[in-house]
Structure formats: C-alpha cells, structure tokens
Design a protein around this nucleic acid. Structure first.
Lengths: 240, 240
DNA sequence: GCTAGGACCTCCCGCGACGGCGGGTTCAAG
DNA sequence: CTTGAACCCGCCGTCGCGGGAGGTCCTAGC
C-alpha cells in the first residue's frame, strides 16, 4: 500500500494513530488491510496534503460527508488566502536579505562590529514599530530603494557612535563637525518621518523613552550615554 | 529584559537552555542578570531570527568571532537562496489552488464525488511524475492556462467513468458513442504527451502498470476493471 | 518440516522554537 | 509583616512524521 500510493509505512501508521485513516480491516495477526474505500480516501488525503492543508483540516472536511463541496471550497479558499499572506511575508524577507547582502558586497562596510550594530538596529526597529508603521516604511522603501534604507540604518549607527565620542570629549556645541553630524542626523530622520503620521513619530519617541527608562540597557548603547546624547543634540540644535 | 527587547521570558530561558545566550551573571538567589554584552548579543540573535535564520546557525556564526563577516555573508546568501526556492514552491501551490478554485466556481463540477475523484487524480499525478517531468508539464501549463489542466484532469476522470460503464455493458466497439469517447481520450492524452520526451510517456505507462499489477487497488478505480478498460480501448482503436 | 530474511507489529524518543502550566522561591512596596 | 508580582525549575504539548528497539508473521526455497 505504501509503495503503490507513494507514501511511507510510517505515514500510514500515523494516519491510523490520529484516526484520520484507519484501515477498514485487519488480518487475524493484526496486519493492516486496506480496502478500496481506504485507498480512495488515502488519495484524497495525499492530494489535500500536497496542497498544504493540515491533517486536522483534512479530517474535518472529509468527515463532513454532506456533499461537502462548499466546505471544500471554503477550505481551499482559506488555504489560498493563507498562502498569499505567507508569500507576501516571504517577499518582504527576501528584499530585506537582498538589501543586507548588497550592502556587504558593495564593501561599504569593512568593519564586522559595524555590521553587528546594523543587525542590532534591525531588531530595535522591529520591536518598536508596529506592522502598520512598517508598511508605511515599506512604501517609503519602495521610493528610496531597499539598499538605501539598509544604508540608512548603518549611517544612523555611525552617527550615534561618532556623536557619543563628541559627548564624551565634551566638544563645544558650536563646533562645525558636530553641527554637520547633527544636520546629517536630522536629514536622516526627516527622510523617514516626513509625511508619516503622528503615530510613527510617537513610536520613535517611545523607542527612546522605553530604552532610556525601562531598565537602562535596552539599546545597543548604554542608556545613560544615550540620555546624554539626546540632551547634547538639543543643545546643538538650539545653538544653531 | 524581555519587555525591553520585545521577546518573551520563555524565549530567553530557551536561549539559555540551549546555550545560545546564557546571562553572564546570576544573583545570589539564582535570577538571571543580563549584562550590556548580553543585551547586544540578544539583539543580534533576534535580528537574525527575524531574517529566518535557525538558532543553530545563529549560534555557529556568532561563535565564530574571527571577524565573521564572510561567514555572515555566506549564511545570509544561503538563507536567501533557500527563501527563493521556497517562494517558487509557494507560487506553484498558489497556482494549483487557484486552478482548482476556478474550476469549482465556474460550476463545471456540480457533483462532489467528481471533485473527490479530481483530488485523487492529483495525488496519482504527483506520485508517478518526477519533478522534472512536472516541470515539463508546468511549461505546457503555461501555454494552456492553469485552469485548463485542472479541467483536463476532470475530463479524464469523467472519460474513465463513462468508458467503464460501456465496458460493463459490453457496448460494441463500433458504437459511435464509444468511438467518440476514445477520440476524446486520445486527444486529451496528446495534449499532454505531444512534444514531451520518451520519459514522460514512460512515466505514464508506469503509472498504469504499477497500478494494475502492484497490489491491484492503487488507482481510485479497481485494477481489474482498469485492465479491462485498457484492453477495450485497444480494441476500439483497432476497429477505428 | 525447517530456516532465512523480509515485512509487519507496538512502543517510544526525537526534531524546532518555543508556549503554557504547576509548584515553589524571591523581591519590592505598602 | 503581608501581599502580589516576578522569577525559578521541570515537564508536557505542538506538527507531521523519521527512526530505532525488540518482537511476531509470512513466504520462498531446501
């Protein structure tokens, strides 16, 4: 039976165990004997499995013997919707991976630590931006190109690290190097926040607040240094 | 730590259990205490997870602290390839589902039993045609349209059932109804076999042979009746 | 009748990435 | 000193089987 149907013995036994397809007969010694009816049912099961339907759903739709054509259509339609959602997610992942790889290969990032920081920023982004907001970003990404947004994350990490050094060295707020860095910072932010709703800005704000207050170590950089950095930023802007 | 990083407590403990991310410190009472180093590592783990990388691969690539940028690129490239293959499979499934649904909705199939038979044929096809051969069929499908091929499976099932009745009633081979059915049968086959290599034809042949000889009940119809049907077909063709 | 070896049986553990429960301990606020 | 929240550990469950141990059965050849 297993050979003829293209399944394995183990799978047949599994279907028997969960009650999806129990052979109608057994020999005196306990061997499973599949009738013609069982064979047809097995083909139906395998076909639905190959369409990605779960065994539980197969069981319920095959148990509903009241014609069952409507139930079957509903099941397949739902399956199709699920697949389409899944395909969209896969697509998004694929773009993200391509962006990252493009960035590595364009040799714009010789420093492994820098790359790790980019990875960390990805996680921070995904934690604090809801799906909706990320869809807004995705639309923007379509305009900017997927590599651009990855590069932006890197640039941000870069800016943070440089500015942190200036905070530590207490560089005066009028220093043109600092003012240039802050200008880049603001330009970077406006590329992503301009045109977005208030909620996206709020999420960005929450990102800072949670990270500096919650337990003080949620960002890749220490929270107290980030607080200092934010205050320093404001001083530079007011001085400009 | 869980709240701030967007993970769950259970996930953190899981990472600890498998040795992927064990907190550097513990309090005297045994509570996990995560250092700044741990936090950064967690962000890296979460980012790679969100890219679909398995925990095992993450562990190996993060353990390789020798710069690791090349290992990282290899990992992400492999991940991307896997995703692309997966996307192609999802695409194929989606088309198949759309074909089936289109067939149901076009009301060309009012009989639930008929639809179940179509399901069974799907399984038979997938068992006996190798991937390569199915790719050939897929190219042909592109020419014919995906709904057409589903309709063909239905038509085949229909032809088999009508011809089986004629075999049972022993309709003379000169009967025009029978000759018409056989003509449709041959036309149907030629739509799929014409232009295909010898192997595809061989697979179709194997499909019949295995099914009529192996255990005698592998097709949705009884094997002896199918044997009779095949003999009857040849007689009709010779009479034509 | 005997034996060899293949096919079958049941029972059980394993995967991957956690979720969730139960029963106990620890911690910080009031 | 209490109380409720947060933490600890250990164990079972998920989904669709794969694979192994240890035993029984069946058929072909001698």
């Amino acid at each position: 039976m297993a050979r003829a149907s293209g399944t394995t013995v183990r799978a047949l036994r599994h279907y028997d165990e969960i009650g999806l397809l129990s052979p109608s007969e057994r020999t005196a010694s306990g061997h499973r004997r599949y009738t013609e009816f069982d064979v047809r049912r097995l083909y139906q099961v395998r076909a639905l499995r190959s369409l990605g339907v779960s065994l539980e759903e197969i069981a319920s739709v095959l148990a509903d013997s009241t014609g069952g054509l409507e139930a079957m259509r509903d099941l397949l339609a739902e399956q199709l919707r699920g697949l389409e959602v899944h395909a969209a997610q896969v697509q998004q992942l694929t773009e993200q991976l391509r962006g990252l790889l493009g960035q590595i290969d364009h040799a714009s990032m010789p420093d492994p630590d820098q790359f790790l920081t980019t990875l960390e920023m990805i996680s921070v982004f995904e934690t604090y931006f809801t799906t909706e907001q990320r869809e807004q970003l995705a639309r923007r990404r379509a305009e900017l190109g997927s590599e651009t947004i990855e590069a932006a994350k890197t640039e941000w990490a870069e800016l943070v690290e440089e500015l942190l050094r200036h905070v530590e060295e207490d560089t005066p707020v009028e220093d043109p190097r600092v003012r240039s860095l802050v200008a880049r910072w603001d330009a970077l932010g406006s590329r992503f926040h301009a045109g977005d709703g208030e909620q996206t800005r709020a999420a960005a704000q929450r990102m800072w607040n949670d990270n500096s207050e919650e337990i003080g170590r949620s960002l890749p950089w220490p929270a107290d240094r980030m607080r200092d950095l934010v205050r320093y930023l404001e001083r530079v802007r007011q001085a400009g």
